[in-house]
Amino acid sequence: MVSRQPMIEVRNLYKRFGNLEVLKGVSLSVGRGEVVVVIGPSGSGKSTLLRCLNYLETPDSGQIFLDGVEVDPKRNLRQVRQEMGMVFQSFNLFPHMKVLDNITLAPQKVRGTDKESAEKLALELLAKVGLADKAHSYPGELSGGQRQRVAIARALAMQPQVMLFDEPTSALDPEMIGEVLEVMKKLALEGSTMIVVTHEMGFAREVGDRVVFMDDGHIIEEGPPREVFSNPKQARTREFLSKIL
């Protein structure tokens, strides 16, 4: 399942906001088709790590490789972003556009796909996330869970090599969490490479190939979900898990 060349490799990443050091030398390798679930307390740097991967935040130092190619904001930033689909906690759908246009915009403007193929793909993706009938709705007319599924479809429409999820269900009412996790699970089973920041431990256990525990800007512990959850080696991991499980 995991090939030799990692899909994403992070080496020694540092990031500070003013005086606040948020990432203190993070290294991480994600294999092709692997689902890595990142957990950790609030403020530990999970979002920052994810946002550094596609340079929504610029790291202070360290290297990021996508499929063996180093990410260099001066040279390949936009190509890299096209290959990393991102799903945000707050959906960030474009409210002035219909669902279909939300999904087809980037493929057309960025990839240069023609309108017809872009719409065909968008409708397929909408069917996949269970929203085939919502193509002509505006985001404002959808529930939170539906919006997040559209956001996933929008990211998928660029046919990225990696999907990044930053707490995709944290802004949702409890009854809508399941439908979003279901879609994510489907993607995982199809072999997508995914990095998922989440507090949904059930998802981590069931879908994750590996769990990464972050605290205070460091990766403290990582391993298969079963091991990390049932037999955490580090005291800080134990403490965190005891609070949330």
């Binding site: 596609n54 929504l56 936009r78 190509q79 972003r81 096209q82 990393m84 689909g85 991102m86 945000f88 707050s90 960030n92 759908l93 474009f94 409210p95 002035h96 915009l105 980037a106 403007k109 960025v110 990839r111 956001a151 929008r154 990211a155 660029m158």
Partner: peptide
């Protein structure tokens, strides 16, 4: 700010983000 981030994360340029996402809103 999330609007800009979403557009950029899809690979759009700043100009495209302005033109298609920010200015219309």
């Amino acid at each position: 700010k999330g609007q800009t981030e979403a557009a950029l994360s899809l690979g759009m340029t700043s100009a495209q983000t302005m033109r298609y996402i920010i200015l219309p809103q």
